[in-house]
């Protein structure tokens, strides 16, 4: 059994106004970052998953997103990366 580090990002669905993102975008514009548009704020979840393969780790993360990490009524999720993780040594 290997250990994988998996990162997932949860954001509000595109169809839903993201007031936090809009407010941050306005602040960026006030600072002169005129080129920046469509700012969306989300949640970043990093987890380590024990699995036989990267595909299995991805599957676990997918299920975690569907079950708990994202609420499909208002949120979308994206699994960003599955990379090998070094197992923590047991003292």
């Amino acid at each position: 059994m290997d250990r994988f580090r998996v990162a997932a990002v949860v954001t509000l669905r595109r169809s839903i106004a993201d007031v936090q993102g809009t407010t941050v975008e306005q602040a960026l514009h006030a600072l002169g970052f005129r080129a920046i548009e469509n700012v969306r704020i989300g949640k970043y979840v990093e987890m380590e998953i024990r699995a036989a393969s990267a595909e299995e780790a991805h599957r676990h993360a997918e299920q975690a997103c569907q079950r708990l990490l994202a609420n499909p009524v208002i949120e979308d999720y994206q699994i960003l990366a599955v990379t090998p993780a070094v197992a923590k040594e047991v003292p």
Binding site: L12, T23, N71
Partner: peptide, 16 residues
């Protein structure tokens, strides 16, 4: 709502 006993979900207040 989270439990699915009622429809819908909650966002942060409009005025944050």
């Amino acid at each position: 709502c989270e439990a699915g006993l009622l429809p819908g979900a909650f966002l942060r207040n409009r005025q944050l």
